[in-house]
Amino acid sequence: MQIVTTNDIPGYVVEEVFGEVFGLTVRSRNIGSNIGAGLKSLVGGELKGITKMLHDSRQEALARLGEEAIAKGANAVLAFRFQTNEYEGMGAEICAYGSAVRVRPA
């Protein structure tokens, strides 16, 4: 499965477009991360617990995007993007999205 941010893949031809696909996850922060983030905000610096949560969440959303594309018969996703939103002050919603397509070498 090729997943790219571009609208095409050099050396490949799009044979079929299956439409938009999504991978979504919503994650809450644990109490330790919230306390650590509150203390860290006093002195500044990276919020490592939250950074890890967002990294893991993006990986999960990306995997779900790939699964949905495969289920539609695609072998690639074009115009891939992430969107991240805060979820009611308790966590984060991460959405991976793009266009599912079948490509072949040119």
Rank of each mutant, 00 (worst) to 15 (best):
I3H: 01
V4T: 12
V4H: 04
T5D: 15
T6W: 15
T6F: 15
N7C: 04
D8T: 13
D8C: 10
D8I: 10
P10S: 09
G11H: 01
Y12L: 04
V14A: 00
V14P: 04
E15Q: 11
E15Y: 07
E16G: 00
V17S: 06
F18Y: 11
F18E: 01
G19R: 06
G19E: 09
E20M: 09
E20G: 05
V21Q: 14
V21H: 14
V21F: 11
G23D: 11
V26D: 10
R27S: 15
S28Q: 13
S28D: 13
R29N: 13
R29Q: 13
N30W: 04
N30E: 09
N30M: 08
I31G: 08
I31W: 09
I31R: 06
I31H: 10
G32N: 14
S33C: 06
N34H: 02
I35S: 05
A37S: 14
G38V: 07
G38Y: 08
G38C: 05
G38K: 08
G38A: 10
L39P: 02
L39E: 06
K40R: 11
S41M: 01
V43W: 03
G44T: 08
G45E: 02
E46P: 13
L47K: 02
K48G: 00
K48N: 01
G49R: 00
G49W: 00
G49E: 02
G49H: 00
I50K: 01
I50T: 08
T51H: 02
M53C: 03
M53D: 06
M53T: 12
L54H: 01
H55R: 02
D56F: 00
D56M: 04
R58I: 03
R58N: 05
Q59G: 08
E60T: 05
A61M: 07
A61C: 04
A63T: 14
L65K: 01
E67I: 05
E67G: 04
E67C: 03
E68N: 12
E68R: 06
A69V: 11
I70P: 02
A71G: 07
A74L: 12
N75E: 12
L78N: 03
L78K: 02
F82T: 01
F82Y: 11
F82K: 00
T84R: 04
T84V: 09
T84P: 03
T84E: 15
N85R: 10
E88P: 09
M90H: 08
M90Y: 10
G91Q: 09
A92L: 11
E93W: 01
E93N: 07
E93T: 02
C95P: 01
A96T: 13
A96D: 10
Y97M: 15
S99I: 09
S99T: 12
A100T: 07
V101Y: 10
V101I: 12
R102F: 14
R102G: 07
R104M: 09
P105V: 05
P105C: 07
P105Q: 14
A106T: 02
A106Y: 07
A106N: 12
A106H: 09
